[in-house]
């Protein structure tokens, strides 16, 4: 087990490549922007006890968009670039197993996204202290932790694809494909499946609502969104139903209808621990699948 050595070296390499600094600057800029705007007076807040819960609500979609893209760019070539250039031969001349390489890469690159995200939130928290907005530390730092986890999950998916791919080109096609599939097509796929089941299998009512939400949370980004929603909603049902709240009033209404359909308690496959489990499953399964392909490959 030498993955720690591989991870440290990979992280060291990233520090030298300035990735860490550029990303830290980016996340600090994005996350500290709202409180900075309050201080600068660009955002006027009234008297009534405003808290950072609003920040969580407002920044969730930004993070859902930003973090996966950065993770993909950061990690899609993590193994293929070593394969293409020949550094992999130097690496595997040393007593590392191929599993150590995959795990070490995932951990090393994971660190490269976690630290900037954490830095961004810490700076934002400090800036909030200088505003009249109350720092509600629990939800605020839970949001930070979930965002870091989202980054690690997409790093793990990208490292997994990179391990299984023969070149950086195919790794890029693979990772971008996965990202685009989930971002653009997953909801359409889910809605199509729901409609088919409704039309041909008679699945409707509450069962349909549950199935639709269950399929949605299989997408790691939506799993993240609904867990973050849990930080500013009253119940798990409301947090899951939040996934169908598009923009505007119609969306709000949709979410309320879904929440009502779910009632007081949600089935285990829509519970908070299960959604967390979905994220963990991605975190483990993607590198594992990539590793099995990598293990069998001739270099």
């Amino acid at each position: 087990m030498t993955w720690q050595v591989v991870a440290r070296k990979d992280f060291q390499d990233a520090v030298r490549s300035h990735w860490l600094w550029v990303l830290s600057a980016l996340f600090v800029a994005v996350l500290a922007m709202p409180p900075a705007l309050v201080i600068a007076g660009f955002i006027q807040i009234g008297q009534g006890g405003l808290t950072t819960d609003l920040f969580v609500f407002l920044l969730r979609d930004t993070m859902t968009l930003l973090v996966p893209i950065i993770a993909v760019v950061l990690a899609y070539a993590s193994i293929t670039e070593e394969r293409d250039s020949g550094t992999l031969k130097l690496l595997l001349s040393l007593p590392h197993s191929r599993r150590d390489v995959v795990v070490g890469k995932a951990v090393g690159r994971g660190g490269v996204i976690v630290l900037p995200v954490v830095a961004g939130f810490v700076v934002a928290a400090v800036v909030f202290l200088a505003t009249p907005v109350a720092l509600n530390a629990g939800p605020f730092f839970a949001f930070a932790a979930l965002s870091a986890v989202l980054g690690v999950v997409f790093v793990a998916i990208s490292v997994g694809i990179s391990a299984g791919a023969r070149s950086s080109r195919s790794a890029m096609i693979g990772t971008v494909g996965v990202y685009v599939f989930f971002t653009l097509f997953w909801n359409q796929f889910v809605n199509g499946a729901i409609r088919l089941l409704h039309d041909y299998a008679g699945v409707g009512g509450t069962a349909q609502v549950k199935l639709q939400l269950f399929l949605k949370i299989l997408d790691p980004s939506q799993a993240y969104k609904t867990l973050v929603a849990r930080l500013f909603t009253a119940s798990a049902a409301a947090a899951r139903a939040n996934l169908v709240s598009g923009s505007g009033l119609q969306g709000q209404l949709n979410a309320q209808l879904y929440a009502q359909a779910l009632g007081k308690s949600v089935p285990f496959y829509l519970s908070d621990p299960f959604v967390a489990l979905v994220l963990i499953a991605w975190l483990v399964a993607a590198p594992a699948v990539g590793y099995y392909a990598f293990r069998e490959a001739d270099l």
């Binding site: 070296k9 060291q12 390499d13 030298r16 490549s17 250039s85 020949g86 550094t87 031969k89 130097l90 595997l92 001349s93 040393l94 007593p95 590392h96 197993s97």
Partner: peptide
């Protein structure tokens, strides 16, 4: 892994880590 623990290798067609 046990083999490589006891073996020093100068591989062919390798490259170094440019930034380290």
């Amino acid at each position: 892994v046990a083999v490589r623990r006891r073996t020093g290798v100068l591989p062919e067609g390798f490259d170094v880590y440019g930034r380290l």
